[in-house]
C-alpha cells in the first residue's frame, strides 16, 4: 500500500492541509478545507465549467483573491489551472495569490457578445488579456473598468480591482495609478 502524503495547499493566503494520494492519479485531491466548500462553489457558479482542477481559482474569487497555480518544485506559474506543472512535471502545485499588477497585452472591444449581467454592448465592452507581473507570458483575461476607451491601449499598466457579477466577486483590471 502506498503512503498518503500530506501536501500544503495555500488558499487565500492561508496554508491548509490537503491529502493527496500519490499515485493513483492527478486531480484527485481529497481536500479537508474549511471555508468555502466544493458544493458552495458549484452553487455560486451554476453556469461555469468548474472542475477539480480549477475549483481553487473559483474559491479564491469568492474571497476576492486572484489565484494562479504555481509549482512548488520549480517555482513556475502556469495558466489555466492544471494538476501538473508543464515545466517540470511536479504535481506539487499551489493555487497562489498574485500581486494584481500587469500590463495589457491584447485588447479588443466587443460590439456584441454573450449576455452577461452589467454588460451593455451599446458601449463596446473592453476585453483585455493582461500579462501578469509574476512571469513573462503569464496572462489573465478579463475586462477593464474605470477607463475611457480612448485611454486604453496595449502596453498600458493595469491593476486588479473587484466588481460584482451575478452576485459574485469578479476580478477586473483598471489603469494603474500613475
Amino acid at each position: 500500500m502506498r503512503p498518503i502524503q500530506l501536501q500544503n495547499i495555500s488558499i487565500s493566503g492561508t496554508v491548509r492541509a490537503c491529502r493527496t494520494a500519490d499515485p493513483p492519479c492527478d486531480g484527485v485531491k481529497e481536500t479537508v478545507l474549511s471555508g468555502i466548500s466544493d458544493a458552495e462553489v458549484l452553487e455560486r457558479y451554476p453556469r461555469t465549467a468548474v472542475d477539480h482542477d480549477n475549483k481553487y481559482f473559483y474559491q479564491g474569487l469568492l474571497e476576492r483573491k486572484l489565484l494562479v497555480n504555481r509549482c512548488n518544485a520549480c517555482g513556475r506559474w502556469h495558466q489555466p489551472p492544471r494538476p501538473i506543472c508543464p515545466s517540470c512535471w511536479s504535481r506539487d502545485i499551489t493555487a497562489t495569490e498574485v500581486s494584481g499588477e500587469g500590463v495589457i497585452h491584447l485588447l479588443i472591444f466587443l460590439h456584441q457578445g454573450p449576455p452577461a449581467a452589467g454588460v451593455d454592448y451599446a458601449t463596446p465592452h473592453p476585453v483585455a488579456v493582461v500579462e501578469l507581473a509574476e512571469q513573462e507570458g503569464l496572462r489573465f483575461s478579463t475586462t477593464i473598468v474605470n477607463a475611457d476607451r480612448e485611454t486604453l491601449r496595449i502596453g498600458l499598466p493595469v491593476t486588479l480591482t473587484w466588481i460584482e457579477r451575478d452576485g459574485n466577486p469578479f476580478p477586473a483590471f483598471a489603469p494603474a495609478a500613475v
Partner: peptide
Amino acid sequence: GGVSPAPEDVWGSVGYTAWASRYLY
C-alpha cells in the same frame, strides 16, 4: 453543453480578434 460563455472568455473567435489587435499594435 449548458455552460454559458462570459464576454471575457478569450477563446475561439474572440482569441483571433485579440491577436489581431496585437498585430496592429
